[in-house]
Design a protein around this nucleic acid. Structure first.
Lengths: 213, 213
DNA sequence: ATCTTTTTAGCACGAACGTGCTTGAACCGT
DNA sequence: ACGGTTCAAGCACGTTCGTGCTAAAAAGAT
């Protein structure tokens, strides 16, 4: 069956992306519970029916938005990890690249802050809402994979002991999420400088680990 | 003016506490956004009007619930810290007491899990809702105080360098909150055992810090 | 028994929500 | 010019929410 009549071509994917970014802005400024169809439509400069034309339901819009932010974050991490891999271990550029990688988790600028807000909001919402479960699991796997590879590269022993390696990966992951949380919830206390200090302190403890134990 | 007619005595504080615990159960199982007056009243076995008799508004109910959970957590921390202080530094009982203290943050049993859920939900909601701001700030101060004192006692140098001390306090705080988050959001991955491993690993890095740097 | 106050319960209103459905408007191949 | 398809917009219904308000039930002091 051929498409005989090619109708009005409005780049549908671009429109969807605009709506998604309206969702992001609303979540960042007013929280996930305010991301209703009416609010999103207003923010995107559209009518409710128009948004519903691109997203069958509210759930689909939210799940897709979650997936988009996860892809964005995972993409940044992969990109930054490639830089880390390309540099020689122990060099100052390497250390800087590692800090840059870890900084992708934190709300250090406007764009990162929005993503961090949205990411946190969705992950917490996924605890309750089954529709978000799959994307949340994918998010966790993607981030854990990058952090795991990073720890494997950074640990002195090369990660001989498997158990120790996952513990250190979980430890770095927890510190990152905790830092992100505090930076979002207590921005006065948790400034970018404090974040950097905490991260460098953590990295010191990672490289200078007691080999035995 | 004397109270001539002392009417029906129902200890109001106990009733309020019952309502608050209904709020906790709802937040833990269905999330904060489901903690409406009608849901809370149902959960507490009361009518909406009855709940509204003890709490003037929905906001007051939520703010009070937040304050109660903060007090509960802060109380547990103070109690556990007193035990830590009473033991000799470096002893095995001391180490165990420190782990017990830090475990108060994590959802290691039913009661702790409910509190952790509620605490997280309110703290994140406080980013948006101004009514929760004050209690959130109090919560942060109380917890940071205990963790700060703990770090001061645990660090080898006795915390000579002020700057290093606050960095380590923030680092421990971040790790704790991150662990709590992961234990709530990915309970399959982040088991109690992994939590314990991560915490002991962190404590090792805290005691075995390079003195200079 | 009566009176006063607390306690409990319920109604009604406006606002916001998701969603099924309908109605024009825009657009392109014929 | 026309017809088929997509896009944009809006209405209407049922649900849930907070809240102001009213009113019945409960209980101790008189």
């Amino acid at each position: 069956m051929l498409k005989r009549f090619v109708p009005k071509i409005v780049d549908a994917e671009a429109r969807r992306q605009e709506v998604v970014e309206a969702v992001f802005r609303i979540i960042a400024s007013d929280g996930l519970e305010r991301a209703s169809l009416r609010e999103v439509a207003d923010e995107a400069g559209l009518a409710v029916g128009s948004v519903r034309h691109y997203f069958a339901s509210s759930d689909e819009l939210l799940v897709h938005s979650f997936a988009v932010v996860v892809d964005r974050i995972a993409g940044r991490l992969e990109e930054a990890f490639a830089v880390v891999e390309s540099l020689e271990t122990g060099s100052t550029e390497h250390d800087a690249a590692v800090l840059t990688l870890l900084g992708q988790f934190l709300p250090l600028d406007e764009e990162l802050a929005v993503d961090a807000c949205v990411w946190m909001a969705f992950r917490h919402a996924a605890r309750i809402r089954p529709v978000l479960e799959q994307v949340a699991a994918r998010s966790h796997r993607a981030v854990a994979a990058v952090v795991g590879r990073l720890v494997m590269q950074l640990m002195p022993d090369g990660g001989s002991v498997q158990e120790r390696l996952v513990t250190e990966a979980e430890r770095l992951l927890a510190t990152l999420d905790g830092l992100c949380m505090h930076a979002l919830l207590q921005p006065e206390w948790m400034t970018a400088e404090v974040c950097r200090d905490v991260l460098t302190a953590h990295l010191d403890t990672l490289v200078a680990l007691p080999s035995n134990r």
